[in-house]
């Protein structure tokens, strides 16, 4: 007895193929929506801001006159901020991931910590700003400094780095660890010589993506009360500073239309920076793609 009636199957083939085509176009449209919006955005910003983009734009401080405005303080501030955020967040993130993946016993407490790290990634950045303000700025008395903002930002991106590092560590095959243990290596020797070298590409990719999030983040800085107009560059991690997104945010708030164009120029700089960082991440990922 045949369960498949080949004649009726043949009849239905055309409609099935049509359905397939229609859905394909719908999904393509969904993909294009994001791309088109991005393209429009880029076009507007580039046309708006390009006339303000010049060498002076990078070497001048902020000003009341749009033509004289620059991002010297903001870009330096952002760089200093990254110099604080990168080591702190990577050390804490990778350390946590190594502990959770390699050392921690699989029990309820570990599970609880794991779930909460994922939850932490979902907390709005404003809340981190409040946390930073309360703990680092006020409680530890760091004030509105690079260190306070850096610690806050580190906390903000910590969950991303932890999760990325965990994934990277987990993807190192168990067989490699076994081979190392079977030769009498200790856990730490195995982590240092086998697990981390194999996981480094994944960890770096995740960390760079996390840092690029930090560099574009505004809300925590607003909550911390970072100034926007600063006529000097920071001299230590305890001095106050401003950052690119703060500067842009400030310019867009101004009533003068010309400042909106200056903001667009700032956005171009910020986006270029982000694209460069993301490209580095993609490059690392491709170059060191899993070879096992």
């Amino acid at each position: 007895m045949n369960y498949i009636d080949h004649e009726s199957v043949a009849k239905k083939t055309n409609s099935r193929l049509l359905k397939n085509k229609v859905l394909k176009s719908i999904f393509l449209a969904a993909t294009m929506f994001g791309l088109i919006v991005l393209a429009i955005l880029l076009y507007r910003i580039v046309t708006q801001g390009s006339e303000y983009l010049s060498l002076e734009f990078f070497t001048s401080f902020a000003s009341r006159i749009p033509e004289n405005s620059g991002i010297k303080a903001a870009i330096l501030g952002s760089i200093y901020l990254m110099l604080v955020v990168a080591p702190i967040s990577m050390f804490l993130g990778v350390g946590t991931a190594v502990y959770l993946e390699e050392y921690a016993k699989k029990n309820k407490l570990t599970n609880f910590i794991r779930i909460n790290i994922s939850n932490l990634a979902g907390v709005p950045s404003v809340v981190f700003g409040l946390l930073g303000l309360t703990i680092f700025a006020r409680f530890f008395g760091l004030g509105i400094s690079i260190l306070a903002a850096g610690l806050t930002m580190s906390l903000l991106i910590l969950p991303i780095i932890i999760v990325a590092a965990q994934e990277a560590i987990r993807s190192v095959p168990k067989e490699l660890r076994d081979a190392s243990y079977a030769m009498g290596a200790t856990k730490w020797q195995t982590i240092l010589r086998i697990v981390l070298p194999a996981a480094i590409p994944g960890i770096l990719t995740g960390s760079i993506l996390a840092l690029s999030r930090a560099i574009g983040e505004t809300a925590p800085l607003v909550v911390l009360g970072i100034p926007t107009i600063l006529m000097f560059t920071p001299d230590s991690i305890l001095s106050t500073f401003t950052a690119l997104p703060m500067q842009i945010f400030d310019w867009t708030k101004r009533p003068q239309v010309a400042f909106h164009d200056v903001a667009a120029a700032g956005i171009i700089v910020l986006m270029t920076l982000l694209i460069i960082m993301n490209s580095i991440a993609v490059f690392i990922r491709n170059k060191y793609q899993k070879r096992y």
């Binding site: 095959p173 067989e175 490699l176 243990y181 079977a182 009498g184 096992y292």
Partner: peptide, 18 residues
């Protein structure tokens, strides 16, 4: 760890380090 320096092991799947 000491035992394992005297007892080597070869696994099912070839597992050289990368």
């Amino acid at each position: 760890e000491e035992l394992r320096t005297k007892v080597g092991m070869v696994f099912q799947k070839p597992n050289p380090f990368p």
